[in-house]
């Protein structure tokens, strides 16, 4: 899998494609590949579709922001909610 750092050597268009690909792979992995896809709810699919453009927009701010979004979206997909500290 291409790393985020490797992606910076590509032309902008390619980079966007690589970032998207990276995100998609992470997305699929987080759902244990094909078996996980079966349990996707429509709201999660919508979240996924919305997050794509958000991630592309964040590219201009650099890799760090992308990773932040990626992490937080992964947590969202894993069902973690913001919970009381106790």
């Amino acid at each position: 899998m291409l790393s985020f750092k490797d992606a910076s050597i590509y032309m902008p268009l390619n980079t966007i494609a690589v970032y998207w690909n990276e995100f998609f792979i992470a997305f699929v992995l987080s759902y244990n590949c094909l078996t996980g896809l079966k349990i996707l709810t429509s709201s999660k699919i919508i979240s996924f579709l919305i997050s794509g453009p958000m991630i592309l927009c964040s590219y201009s701010k650099g890799v760090k922001e992308f990773r932040t979004l990626h992490y937080e979206f992964s947590n969202h997909l894993s069902g973690e909610e913001s919970r009381t500290m106790d």
Binding site: Y71, S74, N75, S78, E80, S82
Partner: peptide, 25 residues
């Protein structure tokens, strides 16, 4: 409820402290 995997970003980490009594997160 840290993002999973993020702690590997800290090469000199010596301690992880929960902000609550629970540690399942």
């Amino acid at each position: 409820q840290h993002p999973k995997g993020i702690l590997s970003d800290f090469p000199n980490l010596k301690l992880v402290s929960s902000m609550g009594a629970g540690v399942d997160h």
